[in-house]
Amino acid sequence: MKHGKPDGVALSNRTYFARYYQLYLMMVLPLLYFLVFKYVPMFGNILAFRRYRPGMGPWGTEWVGLQYFKRFWSDPAFWRAFRNTLVLSLLNLIVNFPIPILFAILVNEVRNLAFKKVVQTISYMPRFISTVVVIAILGELLSPSSGIFNILRQKIFGSEAIYFMNDSKYFRMIYVLVDTWQYTGWTAIIYLAAISGISADLYEAATIDGANKTQQIFYITIPSIMPTIMVMLILNVGRLLSLGFEKVLLMYTPDNSMVSDIIDTLVYRTGLANQNYSYATAIGLFSGIIGIILVAGRNTMSKRLTGDGIY
């Protein structure tokens, strides 16, 4: 019998526990924490089926069945938020899924290693900047009175200043481009890792055969990282509806609410600002269920494609 390796087969329960109780002891506090802070709120979702009365506990007072679900189902504000969530998510996926792939391929072609390292290091950085700071900087850059962007537009084209952050026409584009700015470098790391795994022989053979750089990218690099691209696509589809809630909330103004009100901001407003706890919980639960269906779907897809579930 080996020591230190939970084996369990030949041990009676008592000796098993005597040997490994410390490992369980170690887990007690974190496990308790985990159950309280991750699982209690999960069951707290039953509030969606119960009426909440202030001061009468977080689980509500009486069952009301699907009342709150019926209410949001016939609420145009919900459908507006639902549509906005879907449109913004899809737009984000279409734009920001291919860009990191392209960026990784191009970074990989930089011959000067020092320059390559500098580009990589700096392109990851925006990922670690607070959303508040990003949106605050954006507000300055796009400000109609003093923003550099509007000043340049005026100087070069003589055009009128536009209040970009407040205009519903530009909200989606700005949201997506901020995501591009913040996450392109970071997401590209995964693709760069995949590219660095491609055998140099392939490129050598292609060069001898007379393939130029562009041909090498289309016939070697992209096919070789296709499995990674597929896995990332599946992952992204699985979390399609989870937009950057904080970012949207920071960019939200009454003037752009037509397009910027997504499910999460609706839940925040009806729940926390207006204290309609049960109603907001029902909306939140609905989008949570869609989320888990998407994840399950993505796992099935991944199993079918690669023979291996992601989780």
Partner: peptide, 11 residues
């Protein structure tokens, strides 16, 4: 699958 905003807040 998470509890969501409101159940977390109430907890």
């Amino acid at each position: 699958f998470t509890g969501g905003l409101i159940p977390n807040y109430l907890l």
